[in-house]
Nucleic acid binder design. Sequence first.
DNA 1: CTAATAGTGTCTATTAGACAGTATGTT
DNA 2: AACATACTGTCTAATAGACACTATTAG
Lengths: 266, 266
Amino acid sequence: MENFKSEKEFLESYNPEDYERLSLGADMVIFSISNEDSKNYRKLNNKYFSVLLVKRLDFPYKGMWNLPGGFVNIDENIDDAADRILKKSSGLSNIYKEQLYTFGDVKRDPRMRIVTVSHISLINKDEIKQDLNENAFWFNIDYEEKGDTFVCRLSSVVENIEFEAKKIGDTYQIVKNDKIAFDHALIILTGILRLRNKIEYTDVVFNLLPEYFTLTELQTIYELILGKKLLAPAFRRTIKDKVEKTSKIQGGAGHRPSVLFRRKKK
Amino acid sequence: MENFKSEKEFLESYNPEDYERLSLGADMVIFSISNEDSKNYRKLNNKYFSVLLVKRLDFPYKGMWNLPGGFVNIDENIDDAADRILKKSSGLSNIYKEQLYTFGDVKRDPRMRIVTVSHISLINKDEIKQDLNENAFWFNIDYEEKGDTFVCRLSSVVENIEFEAKKIGDTYQIVKNDKIAFDHALIILTGILRLRNKIEYTDVVFNLLPEYFTLTELQTIYELILGKKLLAPAFRRTIKDKVEKTSKIQGGAGHRPSVLFRRKKK
DNA sequence: CTAATAGTGTCTATTAGACAGTATGTT
DNA sequence: AACATACTGTCTAATAGACACTATTAG
């Protein structure tokens, strides 16, 4: 190595082309809650935990589904690329997002070496004002774990998808999948697990909700994400410091109306 | 976009050079536990939570400290690059590691766009058989948090370092640092926080220990990483399902000898 | 014996789980 | 009135925190 007198001198002689380079992408696992109107006036709406997927129109994996994503530009921060993709897919800005994991196996993309920084994002999809891209659909997530096997069913108006993963040590491996492109099934799985874990010790759930909500709605969302039922008294006890009662009331259904709560700011 | 008849045809026409590319690195936050012999025959050894840093001999940031790291080769998985760097810095293979976070701000490296996938790794440094690189040193970590401020002191035989970060929302920002290169202070901080969090609900600690250890040693390591004292009876209660008593005993000091435990495998 | 650490018993406080019961809208 | 959900009271079980006490070694 040559001997440079100063950092400035070093930088001027430095040629980035000397190193092999690759492409960097950002993929977004955008989660939200979907409502299905109930036919029975007495019953509450059905709620679903859902994820946004886009149908691929081009090779590779043409006709299969993938996560909203794109390349990180050479002069763009990863965070900014993630925000740009979120904005493009939903029209929304200032959305909750966090980095999930970076997937970079050499052959994950058949075109060339593309490393992707995956993110999860939580949105209240009722805030989306624009129409979704015509190839983008919300898929309701239903998953179960039996021992080391994780089975995930994704259902939308246009297609039903099922994939399966096996836990080997600390990592999961996709063992069944024929409709999700690239390694995106693994990314979705990683996102579900991250959110399930994080919902227990953070306040991220509130990003899925409108400003005012009932405690039953909040509990249902916890149940959907955790994949199990909770007992109301215990749930209300643990959540009580995070929310505050408002004077608003949600009525209109064939049963006792519910008080609307709001996230408590400290 | 052209119309391709098959995935094969598409791939043959695809030119990776059409996209701007960048360099990918992998940096390793290698944690271990250091022992300092006690002068008083009655007293236990002092233990420290420590991290491996390397002095930079070249520009940029010549003379400052950085994490062991390197580039991810174009035909190399990120995991394999991380293992290669671990092997190079410690001589060890099959070490515990996990991906930490991907840092990719445009200007994080003055040379060019380098995105780095940081990892944490936990080792028992007594297993290192080879000499460390002459510019690599173990730094004992001592940190404290006061409100939103995180102060971290790193001390080694050759240098003492202090850096400070402020919490803004969910993220930390380095506000004082003059001896750590690049954004590596932030990476170290992120690693400490991740480990502190993870030690509470996983079994990763055991990667820092030899096969046989005393419960007091184990408790001390928890205390060092968590940055607070624990009560022995409560600690022993919570840890008891993860360890098993052996018939070995650690004596030789001026006090009651201790039973050696081992990690319980299921 | 003494200093220093190892290890246990037990009381109390806090938190989680379970279940039963009461309350209150709309049709 | 009846259904469906909203919401609360309270008992019990499990877990965490605190402290005091006993045990055991080298010198």
